[in-house]
Design a protein around this nucleic acid. Structure first.
Length: 221
DNA sequence: GCGACAG
DNA sequence: ATCTTGTCGC
C-alpha cells in the first residue's frame, strides 16, 4: 500500500515542532467505512537495538484469520524519548506497510494515540501518514489519570489529562491488568473500544497486536 | 529542583 | 524495547 511520509532526519526539538503541526490533521470522530480487515503493528529490536524490526499483520475481522503479513528491518536512527516514540519506530513500520498488497481497513498500533502530551502519539502519526482509521493500544500509561477500572471484561473508565478525556482504560479480561486505548485517527473513542474488544478473544491484548508482536520479536521473516 | 516517563 | 531462570498461581 502507498503511504505519505516526511523527513525523519530531525532533532528532538524539530520532532516536537512536527508533532504540533501534524496534530492539527488528526480526526477524532468516525470517518470509516465497513471494516473487513484489521492490521496489527508492532516493533522489536535486534543486535542490542542497532536494528529496528517492524511487523504488520492483517487479519480478517470476521474470524481473526491471517490475510497477509510483512516485516521490515532498518538501522535504528532515533533514540527512545518518552513522547517521541513514533520518530524511532515509524520509518520501519511504514516500510513494512508498503510491502502489503492489500490495504487494511483499520490499524491497531502498539502505543498511544491522542493520549499523549501533544495529542499525537504513534497511532495518530501512522493514521495521518496512511490516512487510515487507527487506534492506540498501549500496555501502560504515558499521560492522564483515571479512577478504578471495572473488574469485568469490557469494563472501562475514561483516561483524563489536563481536564480532557484522551482515552480509556479498558479491562479486556476479568482479573487481568487493563490496557490503555486512545483514538489514533478517523475514529471515535467508543468505536475504537468496540473494535479493540472484537479483536480481543482470550488474552489481554488484541490478536492483531499479539500476532504482530510474534513477528516483530520472533526470528521468522 | 523533583518526579514521571508509550516502546 | 532488551538483557535473563526459575517460580508462583489458576
Amino acid at each position: 500500500m502507498l503511504v505519505k511520509t516526511h523527513s525523519w532526519n530531525v532533532s528532538p526539538q524539530e520532532a516536537v515542532a512536527l508533532q504540533r503541526r501534524l496534530a492539527a490533521q488528526v480526526i477524532t470522530e468516525d470517518r470509516l467505512d465497513q471494516i473487513h480487515s484489521v492490521a496489527g503493528v508492532d516493533v522489536g529490536f535486534e543486535e542490542q537495538g542497532k536494528i529496528t524490526r517492524a511487523a504488520v499483520v492483517v487479519l480478517r475481522l470476521a474470524d481473526l484469520s491471517l490475510v497477509e503479513q510483512a516485516v521490515a528491518r532498518q538501522p535504528t536512527r532515533f533514540p527512545y524519548i518518552p513522547g517521541l516514540l513514533s520518530f524511532r519506530e515509524c520509518p520501519a513500520v511504514l516500510a513494512a506497510l508498503e510491502k502489503l498488497t492489500v490495504m487494511p481497513d483499520l490499524l491497531l498500533c502498539d502505543g498511544q494515540g491522542v493520549a499523549h502530551p501533544r495529542r499525537f502519539g504513534i497511532a495518530c502519526h501512522l493514521g495521518v501518514l496512511t490516512d487510515l482509521p487507527s487506534i492506540g493500544v498501549a500496555k501502560t500509561r504515558l499521560v492522564g489519570q483515571h479512577g478504578p477500572v471495572p473488574d469485568e471484561r469490557g469494563g472501562w473508565i475514561p483516561l483524563v489529562d489536563k481536564g480532557e478525556t484522551v482515552g480509556a482504560v479498558l479491562r479486556t479480561r476479568t482479573g487481568v491488568n487493563p490496557i490503555f486505548i486512545s483514538v489514533g485517527h478517523r475514529i471515535s473513542l467508543v468505536t475504537a473500544l468496540h473494535y479493540v474488544m472484537v479483536c480481543t478473544t482470550r488474552y489481554r491484548l488484541p490478536e492483531t497486536t499479539r500476532a504482530a508482536d510474534k513477528l516483530a520479536s520472533g526470528s521468522g521473516k
